[in-house]
Nucleic acid binder design. Structure first.
Lengths: 327, 327
DNA sequence: GTGAAAGCGCTAACAT
DNA sequence: ATGTTAGCGCTTTCAC
């Protein structure tokens, strides 16, 4: 920086002002500094700047898993909003191990990011709470019962109700559900399924099959369903992967979808949109959720003492080709 | 830090040594410092440490696109190797806009990461070269003709040959190819297809259909194929997405795969492994490529003056259910 | 093994 | 509009 100042014939402070795009610099000196910097290949050192200014304009984002496109779209939303607000985003991921997730968060903490967004992480509630004590934390895609942190989630109840009502509207009465196990949102989806069925005087009893959030679990649950006696005419699966698993199982067995059985998933992952698959599913506005997450976090950074805010966004249904009236 | 030192009854320098896990500290003082730090909730400031030590132990990773699982697995490999070598990894992504990709790289540069890994980015060769002038750069999933940087790639020729020979081995003689357009590796895949066909005295002429790296392009190319006269008995698609697009087009038309036509893809994305799809494809050892990338970059960091090294890893074929002998 | 002193590259008052 | 003077929180000689 000193070299740049000398070359431009000004003081270091002035160079600093120019680099920070301060308006209180004459055009003449600005130009001089800029060309000097260019010639010298000068690049400001963020470490030094942040240390001196006691602020970083950086937020950290912990992604549970880079492999999951579901999280990735949220990340895109975060980035989009961050660009507008002129904050830098640093990503980190834990590769599905809780320990390395913690290390990644520690890293962000040591870098003194202004806040941290946790998307789909499996960190323990206790740990999240501890982190939230040090820096504003926002959790998306999961509710953290105890912690003092903001959250952004989709409304599982609205989504599940949308799914079940779509099937009922089509004329189905025998609608099964494949359970999502311990997956985030799974309990709410199951509960809403049962509740919605009851509201319409339909029996959900004996129609909940144990499953999970994977293709395999959907496949297995469909097998169980096939063995279990009369096949339902419709199926609401815990998520898209699970739905596709069931879809292949039925395909292999010659059970026509949607002719013999209709299927609805949840999440609207890219897979669901594939021509080959065309899964009717529930869409979460992930991009918007990412934007909302960043905006909310930034607000919290400005006002750390406000009480936690919990955003719940409404999902919508995307009707494709796996649902039709019952045979 | 001073507070910790006071509380532990030692000097600041000693606290520094303990935090850096230096061996030259008595167990007694180490314990004292550690408990004091714990009680005070002290967390070292990376900014200050890096500034003072003039090193960061951080490498930056630019991902073209978080949404692409192909890149994500490489990232996992990078993380895995980084954990072993005790370096911190900072991710960034450009959301598919060249401008924001550049901004993300600048960010990493300003943070003074020791090196940068570019995975699948669309940065111009000129820009990459410029960055490589400032800090060690390693590019994976793309070759950068001019730049002075290391690369890690799979051998497109071996992979493509594997695909075509698999089909020939099955007895096919009329094998078409859907072109990958400008996608990374596409030209090599096409050229190798043509060459391998020639080697076996088979005609490739008129059998290359324009396509791309998307499902849609595969779908459209399959339509063109259907309109084009006699359907080939086998098809080597530019990548998996493209292959799946063709797969659905054929499925819709009642063309049996693999009964009437066999299909091979490239990349072995998760989609290909799905029960429903079972695509025969070429697998790139992505995780290993990620590991290799980090190792190579670190070597370059230690020895900046060595000449660029270009790693080429061998892909393998994964035979699933979309290939069979010709009808 | 421990402490004192001198920066790392920058920003932030405060002057001018 | 520009220069001066102190630090930011840490590491690093170098003595003890």
């Amino acid at each position: 920086m000193e070299d740049v100042a000398d070359r431009a014939g000004v003081s270091r402070a002035l160079v600093s002002l120019v680099m920070r795009e301060s308006p209180k610099v004459s055009n003449r000196s600005r130009a001089a500094v800029l060309t000097a910097a260019g010639e010298l290949g000068y690049r400001p050192n963020l470490m030094a700047r942040n240390l001196a200014s006691r602020s970083t304009d950086m937020v950290g984002v912990m992604l549970n898993d880079l492999l999951n496109p579901f999280f990735a779209e949220i990340a895109e939303g975060i980035l989009d909003a961050a660009a507008e607000r002129d904050v830098r985003v640093l990503f980190n991921t834990g590769s599905r191990s809780t320990l390395s997730e913690q290390r990644a968060v520690e890293n962000l903490l040591e870098l003194r990011t202004e806040g941290i967004i946790l998307v789909g992480t499996q960190l323990s509630a206790g740990y999240v709470e501890q982190v939230a004590g040090e820096v504003p934390v926002l959790v998306v895609g999961r509710t953290v019962p105890t912690a003092e942190c903001d959250t952004v989630n989709n409304d599982e109840c609205i989504g599940s109700r949308l799914a079940v009502k779509h099937l009922i509207g089509l004329g189905h009465t025998d609608i099964a559900h494949i359970d999502g196990g311990h997956g985030a949102g799974a309990p709410a989806r199951r509960a809403t399924y049962i509740e919605t069925m009851a509201t319409h005087d339909l029996a959900a009893v004996g129609r909940v099959f144990p499953g999970g959030f994977t293709e395999r679990s959907g496949h297995d649950a469909a097998s169980a369903m096939l063995d279990d006696g009369p096949l339902p005419t419709a199926l609401f699966a815990a998520n898209d992967l699970c739905a596709v698993g069931a879809l292949s199982r039925f395909g292999d067995t010659g059970v026509d979808v949607p002719g013999r059985i209709s299927i609805v998933g949840y999440d609207n992952i890219a897979l669901a949109a594939m021509h080959h698959i065309g899964l009717t599913t529930i869409h979460q506005p992930r991009f918007e959720m990412g934007r909302l997450a960043l905006e909310t976090l930034l607000q919290r950074v400005d006002n750390p003492s406000a009480s936690a805010v919990h955003h719940v966004v409404a999902p919508s249904i995307v009707v494709r080709t796996t649902t039709a009236p019952p045979p």
